[in-house]
């Protein structure tokens, strides 16, 4: 019965090919440092899942943002756990993505034919930092308010277009409800959408080229 069902699906979906190319592909000899890409992917999925859970109670308005997070931490069972994972996972993700980049640099894995994988990876690193920057404002406490004030003011120091960038980030000349809601939109829709799309390209390129072997003395 199950065999027949599997056969039916297999003929139409090609599951075993998918399994072979995704999970059963040949790998060069490596070490634990080679797992950081997968770790980054796992953290992205974890952040996505816990983030979706947080939006169930979080409200992106100056009147309610702080209180709704207090409610998540004290009023909802396991709210502390979900938010804790999201909070610490965010820092961990920046760290893991960065060390992943260092590993690729040290093992020279960015060279032909993987230059595009590297470039897309740079985009992924920047987007990850963007997620950290926008997510930091959402609790709407003193620390996040002033961190965002300073962060957007730094963007404002760019010559000529600085003030425009700052106003675009803040949604006006000051931090306001508009800032909070556009940071929220960026944090849950725009940046994750871009991240997911670029992760797709990144993974496609990795599967297409396979992982690079460590360079030896002749290289």
């Amino acid at each position: 019965m199950w065999r027949k069902l599997y056969q039916w699906l297999e003929e139409r979906l090609g599951l075993s090919d998918l399994y072979k190319s995704l999970l059963d592909r040949p790998e060069p000899k490596g070490n634990w440092w080679n797992t950081l890409g997968s770790a980054s992917l796992f953290l992205f999925l974890m952040q996505g899942l816990t983030g979706i859970f947080l939006t169930v109670y979080y409200t992106p308005s100056p009147d309610h943002a702080y209180d709704s997070i207090q409610y998540i931490m004290t009023g909802v069972r396991f709210g502390w756990l979900i938010r804790g994972i999201h909070h610490w996972g965010a820092s961990l993700m920046v760290l893991v993505v960065f060390i992943h980049m260092l590993r690729v640099f040290v093992t020279a894995s960015y060279k032909y034919p993987r230059e595009l994988t590297w470039l897309v990876g740079v985009g992924l690193l920047l987007l990850t930092l963007g997620m950290g920057f926008t997510g930091y404002l959402l609790p709407w406490n003193q620390k996040s308010y002033w961190a965002t004030t300073v962060g957007t003011a730094i963007a404002g120091t760019a010559p000529f277009i600085g003030e425009f960038i700052m106003k675009a980030l803040r949604g006006g000349s000051d931090l306001s409800a508009l800032t909070l809601s556009r940071f929220f939109a960026a944090h849950i829709w725009i940046l994750p959408g871009l991240l997911a799309a670029l992760i797709g390209v990144h993974l496609y390129l990795i599967i297409k080229h396979g992982e690079s072997a460590f360079p030896d003395k002749d290289d």
Partner: peptide, 14 residues
């Protein structure tokens, strides 16, 4: 992780 997640989602109903 999954069971606390479910409790978290359904908390107001519980």
């Amino acid at each position: 992780i999954g069971i606390p997640g479910l409790v978290y989602l359904l908390d107001p109903a519980l």
